[in-house]
Structures are given as C-alpha cells and as structure tokens.
Design a protein around this nucleic acid. Structure first.
Lengths: 155, 155
DNA sequence: CTCATTGCAAACGATTTGCATACCG
DNA sequence: CGGTATGCAAATCGTTTGCAATGAG
C-alpha cells in the first residue's frame, strides 16, 4: 500500500521539494506518516511523546525513526528544537517567521505561542547596540495559566 | 587550615545567613572555595567548565562537589540555571532582579546580559492578556558577536 | 561524638549511532 | 540492483545519587 504525496499545503510542498528533489530521499511511508502527523498536530512534542502517539497509529514503528524524522525536519528548516524544560528537547513545526515567543505553564505544561512586533523591534535595537548579527531569538514567559491558577486556589 | 568567613559583599552576607544559620550547613573549605570562585567570576559556567577551573586551583576536588555546590546556590536563590544549548545546563550568579536577558554568540559562546524595561513591560501586558501569572521569563537573542563577524569575513 | 560534606563509581534519562535487514525506485 | 530508511540494541553524554570515608563544629 503506497501513500500518494499530495500537495495539501505549503508544508507538503516544501517537503516534496526539499526531500525528494534536493536530497533524493525516498520519503518512505513511515516517514511521511510521522511527518504529516507531526505537522498537522502542530504541538510541541518531545520525541517520546510523538513516538507514543505514532506507535498507536502505526504499530511497529521505532523510536529512532521518529527521532530521525524530526531531525530531518529540523535540518530542512521545517521544525525547530526548543528546550523549555531542561534535559528535554521539544520540536515545533516552523510555520512562518515570528513564532519565537512562548508562554509556558510551569504546572500543566501548556504552551501558548504569540508574536509581538514591538518586542521584535526592541530586540533588533538591542542587537544593533551590541553590534550583534541576530540569527535567532526566543522569548519565554513562565508562569501559571488561568486553569492552574484556579486549581491552586482550591488545594 | 580553616577559612574565615568574611562578609565582603551581599553575596557572602546572604551565604552566611542562608547557609550557616538557616540550614546549619558547615560551609566546608572546599565548598566555600567553589562558591567564592563561581560568584567572583560571574560567568555562565557549566558544571564541567567550573569543575575544570576549580580542579586546577584546588586539586583533588570531585565533580559532584562542584555540582552540589551549584545546586545549593540555586536552591538558595543565589544562582540560576540556564539552558542556552540543549543538553547542557549553565549556572549564573543571581545578582539582582531583572537580569534575565541574554545575547548569545553562536560561534564563540560569549554571553552578554542586558536588561530592558520596555520589554519587561510588554511581557507583563502579554501575560495579563492570556491571564498568566508570571513566575519567570527569559529572552535570548542568538547571533554573531562583533569579533566573530569579523573573523567570518576573512575565512 | 554527631552530623554534614566529599569522592568515587554507578545509576539515570535523553539522545545518538552502528549495523543487519527491509524498503524504494 | 544500489542506495535509503528502519528497528533494535548498544554507546554516549550530561546529570544525579548511594555509600563509605572524611571533615567540621
């Protein structure tokens, strides 16, 4: 059973181009499934989390296959690695520019992305000030989300 | 040979108070040496880096002693853990409030701290907007520092 | 003396890799 | 067929801990 490669969106388009053409990858069934699932979910997965979810939907899959698929996406600029918690890498799909900011709930782990032009602007100014050429940046605000705040109250 | 505990600055003052009194730690010679060295240098050390430097100055010291001294500082609020690179924890002295922002050179690893009231303000606004209670935040700008930019040119 | 601290080696958890096998075009 | 992708188990790397020995008050 082969999987047809449909160009549903920009992701798949970029995948097709980058994978098949540029690097002559054979885009196996398994890899495609992992990648599509990951991109579709659009969450911040650790390798293990993604592996567990994929495993249920496609039994027999190996941890390293998931791991390597994610690494592949990173190397092609289609995913980014994050280190919210120490000792654990999370992967997020790279949709577009500007998604470098996160609100992270320290209790339930919820992650909210946001963009803010004002902050971007200030960052550029600061970098300029120190004569830095910016390649990347990230802003993370840690705290309690609304839900967890309420829970804390009644404990 | 015993080491006298002099109150040179706020750090030592807090150390003395927190360590000796509150927790009845015996502040051994080795631990004091590590802590003083770490605080004086005021850099972003990994355990290993600090260990290597200390080892030269105080042979026979063990890795875990350095590790535990750093953890101790963190638990007393005198140091903070950072995860600039993945899989590696760096420790920085906590001098005062507001030092949560860093410029990190991706080539030479140089780290510059900075504060910016405007950014702090915007962060608060964003958190409020999502009904988050902020406990911590960090902003990291990655790029090439002036020196490394020049080097790149002539390679 | 009593309890904290230390060094070592071993345990740990996440990440990465070597290799034989399966898969793809 | 010739090279890529996969699964497994083992290697790696940073971090953490158990424990017997040492040090401090």
């Amino acid at each position: 059973m082969k999987m047809k490669f449909k160009i549903k969106n920009e992701f798949n388009f970029r995948l097709k181009n980058n994978f098949s053409k540029k690097h002559r990858l054979k885009s196996s069934q398994k890899r495609l499934f992992i990648i599509e699932y990951f991109l579709k979910q659009d969450k911040h997965y650790s390798v293990e989390e993604l592996y567990n979810q994929i495993k249920n939907r496609m039994p027999g899959i190996g941890y390293s296959t998931v791991y390597r698929a994610l690494k592949l996406l990173v190397s092609r600029g289609l995913a980014a690695e994050r280190n919210f918690e120490k000792g654990l890498t999370r992967f997020e799909p790279v949709h577009k520019e500007g998604h470098h900011n996160h609100l992270v709930c320290i209790r339930c782990g919820a992650i909210i992305e946001f963009t803010n032009p004002a902050i971007e602007k200030i960052q550029k100014k600061i970098a300029l000030n120190y004569k830095f050429t910016v390649t990347d940046h990230k802003l993370e605000i840690y705290g309690l989300c609304q839900k967890c705040k309420k829970k804390e109250k009644y404990q």
